[in-house]
């Protein structure tokens, strides 16, 4: 099983590639809504991409109040 750091790194790489933000501009504690400049519908798209990438189901209510990459990684980690 990957470590939390590895999972966070994978999320950062996926988000950077998909939303066309230079990877070096993203860090684990960033607010992904602000940093990726995404709205609610794009957040759902990110969620779907993460579910496919990690082969997990991540109920969206678990993302309420989550806005940084590290906490997002923790939620995913709990389902790996």
């Amino acid at each position: 099983m990957p470590t939390l750091e590895q999972t966070t790194e994978e999320i950062l790489t996926l988000a950077a590639a998909h939303f066309k933000v230079p990877r070096e501009q993203l860090s684990p504690d960033d607010d992904f809504f602000k940093k990726l400049k995404i709205d609610s519908l794009q957040a759902l798209e990110l969620l779907t991409r993460l579910e496919h990438h990690f082969s997990v189901e991540l109920p969206d209510y678990e993302l309420q109040g989550v806005s940084d990459f590290r906490t997002l990684a923790e939620r995913i980690q709990a389902r790996l």
Binding site: D39, S40, A43, L44, D60, L63, Q64
Partner: peptide
């Protein structure tokens, strides 16, 4: 004003 109004 929530960025996630679609999320239940």
């Amino acid at each position: 004003a929530d960025v996630l109004p679609y999320l239940p």
